[in-house]
Design a protein around this nucleic acid. Structure first.
Lengths: 212, 212
DNA sequence: GTTTTTCTGTAGCGACCGCTAGACAAATAT
DNA sequence: ATATTTGTCTAGCGGTCGCTACAGAAAAAC
């Protein structure tokens, strides 16, 4: 009961044409995306299971059979978000030649992404689990935020070691600054800032980087 | 019934030695401060009336008689917060000779305030009403955040007009940057950043200001 | 066909939410 | 002392929360 649907099961279902029993009457990925949008817009606590079933177009028992409980569904949503809408930062870090270029591109893309009217404003990881009754859910996103900053920091350290940034560069402060900008931009997108305003913000923020 | 306790009544009570009827058995300001701490730590929604009555040490009917409903209590808490723990920004803007000096002092004091172990981390106005079921409560704090940024912006404009900042200064972007730093610092304080780390962040952030 | 397996819909569980009616307690007014 | 006013306490309202038991429906297995 507690492990009825695992990712292995899903893969097996995708490989073999059919499984036994009555087939699911909805598309799991589509329903998951609907849940993502709801959590993104209203956050974990403010999105009730009743909201979810209505938006996903399925009954509560179907939701629990396909996704486990509300928290497990949220964790899957966060994973999907990080791999799609929230992946632009990791992409920039992987593709740009320097930490500075990666951060500059990240902030520029954040300005576009966070104000894109095709989906809720801001960043799900920043906003979807603040003021949560469950500390575990809060911690889930907190760890992702801190991990993101740590990734930027190690990227900056690598550039310092390679001589692409001055030896005295404060990698910790620079990485924290990037995180603060992302979080501040996310908040301001939610508060109504336009893409152009956030782009101007991103541009002047890059002035703190040492010439390298 | 709906207007049993107004600020006029409170003043009258303070002026005259006594009023009729059974006197309140708790100190209103002390109870309000307890409510402030609870809302600050857990946010509007995640703090239940049951939590509040327990923390404030009073029964639910006493709470409703003294403070109105939960939302009215929260609004009063926000007002008290803005006038006390959250007043350092306005103080800096009023006392420092330039916008730049005011922002620099604000960020430095934010680093100390947001990590002060004597009370919850971060800023109540930034964190206490995100992901709220009630849009009105969210809007209440959103307006305060945007008003703060607008205040900084007009202060910067004044400095540009007076020649204390270069004519080409982008006041909007500079004010938004200050807001983003405040919001990012608040988030990072909640995520475990130390005072020293936030101070380093505040210091390098000031590098974006034009020489004036 | 019949059986077995799985999903869906109804209906409702116990817990908590914000809030309040009504009885009693403690002060002032007369 | 008695009446009036106001605060506090117990108890519980209607509503929503996350979640699930159970019966019926829809597929594969036999």
């Amino acid at each position: 009961m507690h492990s009825m649907v695992t990712s292995e099961d899903t893969n097996a279902q995708a490989r073999t044409a059919r499984t036994r029993g009555r087939p699911r009457s909805f598309d799991r990925a589509t329903a998951l995306e609907k849940a993502l949008m709801a959590f993104w817009e209203h956050g974990y606590e403010a999105t009730s299971v009743s909201d979810l079933t209505r938006i996903m177009g399925i009954g509560a028992p179907s939701l629990y059979a396909a996704f486990g409980d509300k928290r497990t569904l949220f964790e899957e949503v966060v994973r999907v978000y990080a791999d799609t809408h929230g992946a632009f930062g990791d992409r920039a870090l992987a593709e740009e030649p320097t930490a500075r270029a990666a951060v500059e591109r990240t902030l520029r893309e954040a300005a576009a992404e966070y104000t894109d009217p095709a989906h809720p404003y801001g960043c799900l990881v920043v906003h979807a689990a603040t003021n949560c009754t469950s500390p575990e859910v809060e911690q889930l996103l907190r760890e992702r935020r801190n991990a993101g900053i740590a990734t930027v920091e190690s990227r900056i350290r690598a550039d310092v070691a390679a001589g692409r940034l001055p030896a005295g560069t404060d990698a910790v402060a620079l990485a924290r600054h990037t995180g603060a900008m992302i979080q501040g931009m996310s908040q301001q997108a939610r508060d109504g800032a336009s893409r152009a305003e956030l782009e101007a913000l991103a541009e002047i923020a890059m002035a703190i980087w040492p010439r390298g």
